[in-house]
Amino acid sequence: MTTPETVRVASDAFAPPTTTTAELAPLYRQMLAIRRMEEACAKAYSNGKIGGFLHLIIGQEAVCVGAISALRPEDYVIATYREHGHAYAKGVAARPIMAELYGKKTGLVKGLGGSMHLFDKATNFLGGHGIVGGHVPLGAGAAFASKYRNDGRVTLCFFGEGASTIGGTTEGIALAALWKLPIVFICENNQYSMGTPNDRSFAVNDVSLRALAHGMARDRFDADDVIKVKRRIAEAVERARTTSEPTLIEILTYRFRGHSMSDPGLYRTKEEVEEWKRKDPLNGTREQLLALGMAETDIEALEEDVRIEIEDSVRFAEESAPADDYHSYVEKR
């Protein structure tokens, strides 16, 4: 068994990774598409077109995009109820996502799941789960199956820092460590568990340290650079794939909006939010692309392409027929 002393922690002084426009531009495009998709969702919600709970990921896009870009198509991703971006980054198109939120028949899960329950078997996206921490053992289960079948797949399991204390997360991580499952646990630490800041949630404000109790590798870093996210997740993915060793990674990030659409976010100051917005990874990535030599006009063309894609998804959702079948999927026949 690995002892805590031998566990590697990637250093925060990690040199800024080098990249190319060929690598970075598609990631920028994904992050921007997710941002625009979330903005379109907010608008539709305000207009009463989308119901229920709507948790937006605006501000955190570099986490799901960077992390999932380190995977192969056959790898699994499982996420929380703040998962539109994760589904998109795994390869789900904007159209079925938007149609699902609109409660339409053409939705990704036929209007049965909504914002919190996106699933896509074709891209190995294991869902959108609404019980905090409840999905963490499920992710470990997918990884268990990979080890059982020796299929070489890796599972990325995302959860918020607000989920890090609950039993599902604790047990899922403990069992993955015990059985050496090929999984990477990614704690997206956006500083607030709904309205509760971390200093009122944790005795020790470092979720990654919990790996030590399980002899598990860990890492902890900011989500300010999508390529950094990709590289550091790739290390853990490689460890899972080649040695079947799990890793717990905490990524520090921030959601620009409230917990959900019904949350005005009064528990944090305007200055704090503005401070994080100045570090918006989208802006940073755009500047990086320019610095790498991508022409402003090419970036604008990409941005226009995203605008068209998201507008098209909204139109598709608007024009689709309402969901009409709630009997056929209670059980597999």
Binding site: L126, P137, A140, G141, A142, A145, E171, L175
Partner: peptide, 15 residues
């Protein structure tokens, strides 16, 4: 809670 969930996750992908 953990091993029941591992069962569900493994079943989702075909075990």
């Amino acid at each position: 809670l953990g091993f029941a969930g591992i069962g569900v996750g493994a079943a989702m992908v075909g075990l």
